[in-house]
Amino acid sequence: MPAPLLTVRDLKVVIGGRHILHGVDLEVAASGTTALLGRNGAGKTTTVRGILGLVPRTGSVLLDGEETVRLATHALVRRGIGYAPEDRGVFAALTVAENLRLAERPGAREPAYDLVYELFPELRQRARQAAGTLSGGQQQMVAIARTLLNGNRLIIADEPTKGLAPKVVTEVAQVLERAAEAVTVLLVEQNLAVVRRLAQHCAVLADGRTAHRGPTAELLADADEARRLLGVGRAGHGGTVGTPARTGTPARTAAHPAAPTAEADV
């Protein structure tokens, strides 16, 4: 197996004297999608923010073998990371076009507007609309579009399907699946149907520590373990991925009768 694209070792985050991460270990495989899982409050978002240097952290974050923990966020991101945060991070007072323009990296490669508008034709029509007036799903499209614009090596998406209607969840999942053919993805996700469809590998956090790492299929096949690590009964957060998986997606395990309830039928 090729060396991981991102290796996180002993990541610790303390905010306001409170220990939030106690030493997270994580690898993002060189290609495909790696899921970061865990119950609410397990520390997934903090891990992502720690990786990016958006919160003070210690430990080691290797991007392609290079230590980045001392880099400022903008310098790290410029090495090829696209980030779609949990709250979407869309600038409400700016137009859609301006939101996208901010993600351009002058002096680097040409922004891939063709790709973005092919995936999200709607954004072209709404280019002059204030992003704050978009629907949640459209805002998520802006957030993802910004990560696809500049030929990144790694996309980090924090719960991109959260709070979206089932049809939009499917759309977002399809786009991420397509993106993952060309770029490595670290996906924080609670919708296990999406996880099952997209992620070959996963890491599970519990109480600010890594509790499990391995192939997604293996974890989801073991209902007791999945329930223990991920919790069950996340009604309203499950959702479905309505379209059939495309060919070339990771092998799906047979539906397990006792799978966590969050995993609706794919």
Partner: peptide, 23 residues
């Protein structure tokens, strides 16, 4: 573009840096 960065920064400074811009 600098003006755009300023307007965006007024809304959310951290997100500006997360897009690769030295705010």
């Amino acid at each position: 573009r600098h003006g755009l960065v300023v307007r965006a920064g007024v809304e959310d400074r951290a997100m500006v840096t997360a897009l690769g811009i030295d705010v």
